[in-house]
């Protein structure tokens, strides 16, 4: 029962470092957003977001210290989302196709094919 009412006490070092790292990454991604990276901009932004998410999941949610099943559940959510994105992409990436005369939305790019 040590210090049941001893104020806030000192936060664990790992949590503080995680928090600072997260804030640093916010600054980084905000800064990089104003750098003209072209199409890589979104990739960089999402990569930084993924790192931030990884920090939260690992150090705040302690996913990798809990039971394996929790990891399986978290992984399943992401995997199933990946199914949606990747298989729907088989349609969307092959949609505007001159060979089949298959066009969906007018994007203004059809003529260039």
């Amino acid at each position: 029962m040590r210090g049941a009412d001893a104020g806030l006490g000192r936060p664990p070092r790992a949590l503080v470092l995680t928090w600072l790292a997260l804030l640093g990454l916010v600054a980084l991604t905000l800064g990089l957003a104003y750098v003209p990276l072209g199409r890589m901009g979104i990739v960089v932004a999402l990569a930084i977001a993924a790192v931030k998410a990884g920090l939260v999941v690992t150090l705040f949610m302690k996913l990798f210290r809990g039971p394996v099943l929790a990891r399986v559940a978290a992984g399943a959510g992401l995997f199933w989302l990946a199914i949606l994105f990747s298989l729907a992409a088989t349609d969307y990436l092959a949609r505007n196709d001159a060979a089949t005369g298959n066009f969906s939305l007018p994007t203004g790019r059809e003529g260039s094919r």
């Binding site: 905000l30 957003a33 003209p36 901009g41 932004a45 930084i48």
Partner: peptide
């Protein structure tokens, strides 16, 4: 945050 606020910032 990046999807909404940071898209298209670099011109």
């Amino acid at each position: 945050y990046p999807l909404i606020y940071l898209a298209g910032r670099s011109g």
